[in-house]
């Protein structure tokens, strides 16, 4: 049990620190890398929940595929370092608009969290529950995905195809 807790805090720490580094880095390439680190921490947490399949799939899709594209975009667009000195000498926190938006988001997040916690019942039971064999079973996951969640699954794929077609249309050279 002690090892479990230790590993949980280690991976949770990696996730949180990674997430904080994403927003605090000046260089966008470092932000992307920090996000990958956060995803690895998250994958560790999934393994702790005895869901290795979810952990690995999460690494393949997010850390592997999506973040490579992020990195591509950041590198090729040559996003400049966020040097405040170049376009605004004041500290970001002194910019009124940024502060207002940030505060609004923070309040919203706190309200959401409070709402979720007020609705949640038996949190202790959920925390102490034994890992469910069925959750970690790949076969079970596949079956549920193609029966109970069939609609959501297919709708997602249509959404992704629509996004892809849209991207192709936007990227295509205009022939005039």
């Amino acid at each position: 049990m002690a090892t479990d807790a230790l590993l949980f805090y280690a991976f949770a720490g990696v996730t949180v620190i990674g997430a904080l580094l994403v927003v605090s880095q000046k260089n966008p390439v470092y932000s992307v890398l920090s996000l990958i680190g956060a995803f690895f921490g998250l994958a560790g947490l999934y393994v702790g929940l005895e869901a290795p399949f979810v952990a690995v799939v999460q690494i393949i899709i997010y850390a592997g595929a999506i973040m490579v594209l992020f990195l591509f975009v950041v590198m090729l667009l040559n996003v400049p370092r966020e040097d405040a000195a170049e376009w605004d000498r004041s500290h970001p926190l002194y910019r009124p608009m940024a502060v207002r938006i940030g505060a609004a988001m923070a309040v919203l997040l706190a309200l959401e969290l409070g709402w979720a916690l007020s609705r949640a019942t038996d949190i202790g039971g959920a925390v102490n529950a034994e890992p469910n064999e069925r959750i970690s079973s790949v076969a079970e996951l596949g079956e549920v995905l193609f029966t109970r969640y069939m609609f959501a699954f297919e709708v997602t794929s249509i959404l992704i195809i629509a996004a892809m077609v849209g991207a192709v249309v936007l990227a295509r050279k205009r022939q005039e």
């Binding site: 290795p52 690995v56 690494i59």
Partner: peptide
């Protein structure tokens, strides 16, 4: 690991970085 095939696939995609 019982998802060995996927682990190899995932780690291979890390090599790109």
């Amino acid at each position: 690991v019982n998802v060995a095939v996927l682990v190899i696939f995932a780690v291979a995609s890390m090599g790109v970085y």
